[in-house]
Amino acid sequence: MFKKSMWYSIITIALVCFIVLSIGFYQAIMVTSKVSAQPSAKAQVPQVSEDSAKPSSKNATSFKILIMGDSIAKGTGDEKSKGFSSYLSEYFKNNTSKEILVDNVGIDGLGSLGLQEQLDSRRLDKTILDSDMILVSIGGNDLRSILSLNNLTKEDEFKVRLDNYLNNLKQTIKDLRTANPNSIVIFLGLYNPYEKATSVEDTRLLNTWNYDTQQLVEEDGKWIFIPTYDLMKYNLGRYIAKDGLHPNSAGYQALSNRISKSVEAIISNLSTQ
């Protein structure tokens, strides 16, 4: 009789579940196959303050900066949502009388290939041509995933990535130069956001990466490589945002400060021309 009652529970559960599962199955097919499923109902986007100045028309009285590359270029991690866009123009105000206009086309998670694709799309050609100065931050996403690896293939993987990255970067340098033969280009080096969890090995890889990048970048006379490694190394607590990866507001300010120091002579020159 125990088996009999078990049979009745089984057939009841089975029938109910079968109906429920059929509905679920139908939904699963709909969700993945229908061309336009219902849009997210709750997705309202609260407005936030703008951080990038709108591009304006070409003007002899303006100094145009284009910031491109990954999330660091974009300013991710800055709790004040400012990033290079704001801080650089603040610092540059001291060096030029012209109006400073900033375009920021940084994209979170962009790697060297993505940057190259962005250039290939040619949508930026006009903006590039108009720019007096271009800030590029790229490579962090190319390198990052390797550092967390912990196996024997790390070294090989690193070489492959580095090669790919350098090839992409070479093309990027060429394209930028073609689009705009005159602008100065500032290239941001990589820093290590991980305080203790870093081995000697990882440090070596990072240094190799930065060194090779610098070699390549400075083959072009108007490119300048700005290291960030030294600036961040003992200031991680102060300069790194809560996400443990990006600079925070203070970090962006410090970096902007360093950049402005490196190029202030050139800016003054340009401005007086």
Binding site: V48, D51, K74, G77, E79, S81, V105, R123, A241, K242
Partner: peptide, 15 residues
């Protein structure tokens, strides 16, 4: 922080 970043990104004309 992430939320703010994403909002910014959503409004970026280059997105």
């Amino acid at each position: 922080q992430q939320l703010i970043d994403m909002k910014n990104r959503l409004e970026s004309p280059y997105r």
